[in-house]
Design a protein around this nucleic acid. Structure first.
Ligand code: MN
Ligand code: MN
Ligand code: ZN
Ligand code: ZN
Lengths: 147, 147
DNA sequence: TCGATTTCTGGATTAAGTCTAAACTCGAAA
DNA sequence: TTTCGAGTTTAGACTTAATCCAGAAATCGA
């Protein structure tokens, strides 16, 4: 859809094919942190002839080219995050949903000054309950915790 | 080996069988963050008749009974951590090795005061290079990053 | 237009982890 | 002692996210 998606891919050195644009249109603009399977399901909605292999290929390519971050925060769920800037993450105990927490909402001490380490990046990972429930509860995506 | 391992298991409500003690003797005392397979390899050293299923059963039991924490920080690696108290983690980019960073070495802002969330636990996850190399480099366990 | 290159695909494969059903252990009752 | 049964252990089957592969399809360049 978006005309600058083409530009964004080209700029990253990626050939903007139809499949890649379809994947990009979802995964580069979503507010969620979808897994590969969720990307597949989502994109196949308006692009039914899309194979699983292509989704994985494309996601890995986007990560490699720096358009996407790959996050592994919870058991058995690798997810993708289009927000490249530094931010923290909150994981809901019940739903498994991952939410972004603005960088500036938490001051972390002198990480870079840690003796013996050259820290390239860091984030605070929080787990707990989301408050202010009552709301429609959102479409709860991840059943989480099968045990 | 340790006589109080028996006590520790009993206290947690776990029958201290030979296999469980062998696993406990390694995983509850290690400074590393081993995966299930690393636990298996390690323990089979002095306890060759130990099955993969028992290792998984035992590790899951220990997690369930609160003797062990399960961490998922990196691609395709679920590891176990016997240090129950709060602490942070540093992950070496090259080796994938996970190191503990003392809780007090980093001051994190008012996490508990975050509006809209009831944070049960949190940690800072750092990635980068370990400095002061030259040393024997330790037995580098995890090749990491196959891509 | 046509060969070369890249992209895409279904199906096979891999590998971490779980599940199952049978075998084994061991203390206590008979 | 024997027997019994609850709990433990095991090999191997199974599940599933992810990768690999080799041919088909699309795209590109001259
Ligand atoms: Mn588990
Ligand atoms: Mn895998
Ligand atoms: Zn994020
Ligand atoms: Zn740790």
């Amino acid at each position: 859809m978006s005309p600058d998606l083409v530009t964004q891919l080209k700029t990253a050195g990626i050939q903007p094919s139809a499949q890649r644009l379809a994947v990009a249109d979802y995964v580069l603009t979503t507010d969620a942190h979808p897994s590969a399977d969720e990307v597949l399901a989502q994109v196949q909605g308006n692009f039914p002839m899309l194979s699983r292999a292509t989704v994985y290929n494309t996601l890995n390519l986007f990560v490699e080219k720096g358009l996407l971050r790959q996050l592994v925060l919870a058991e058995g769920r690798t997810v993708f995050d289009p927000r490249l800037g530094p931010h923290h993450h909150f994981i809901d105990d019940e739903t498994g949903r991952i939410e972004d927490v603005p960088w500036d909402s938490l001051r972390v001490g002198d990480v870079r000054g840690l003796k013996g380490y050259e820290v390239r990046e860091y984030m605070v990972v929080m787990r707990g309950r989301k408050l202010g429930g009552s709301r429609v509860q959102g479409r709860s995506a991840n059943p989480v915790k099968k045990r």
